[in-house]
């Protein structure tokens, strides 16, 4: 077979709905053309690369034990939690080495800052919404936290 003939065959098969094409020449040469399409319905040929929606797939590491620890906490009567309003990093103090905002046993007032959650240099000062006594601090300083993750357990006073 001539190269030009093969080329023409490829074109024909390409534009057809055939997934596979076998051709035996009179001189015994055999030509097999197979298209690598998975679906039965061939897509129309196009000169332009179709624009695919950009899908980001970045496998994320397993959540650390700290990230799930809080969810299992059960609350006693009169206890309530303060949760993280966004993904980020938990800080107990306004600056490294500074006094923590709160300690276990402290009574916090509504509007009082209890910690910072940072994401992309946005510093989110988390305030207590209700008056309460800090019973337990569920995450360590500089731990990553998830949206909705409990950070503190407080008890009504």
């Amino acid at each position: 077979m001539k190269l030009s003939e093969i080329r023409e065959l490829i074109n024909l098969v390409d534009k057809s709905g055939l997934a596979e094409f076998e051709y035996e020449c009179s001189d015994g040469d055999r030509l097999v053309l197979r298209k690598s399409v998975s679906s039965a319905a061939p897509e129309p040929p196009s000169a332009v690369e179709p624009v695919r929606p950009q899908v980001e797939v970045y496998p994320e590491p397993e959540p650390s034990p700290a990230a799930s620890a809080g969810q299992d906490e059960s609350l006693a009567a009169g206890e309530f939690v303060i949760t993280a309003p966004m993904v980020g990093t938990f800080y107990r103090a306004p600056a490294p080495g500074a006094e923590p905002f709160v300690e276990v046993g402290d009574v916090v007032e509504p509007g009082q800052t209890v910690c910072i959650v940072e994401a992309m240099k946005l510093m989110n000062e988390i305030e207590a919404e209700r008056r309460g006594k800090i019973v337990k601090i569920l995450v360590e300083n500089e731990d990553p936290v998830e949206y909705g993750q409990p950070l503190f357990i407080l008890k009504e006073v």
Partner: peptide, 8 residues
């Protein structure tokens, strides 16, 4: 420097 005050 961005700082925020919010609820959940």
């Amino acid at each position: 420097l961005v700082e925020m005050s919010c609820e959940l």
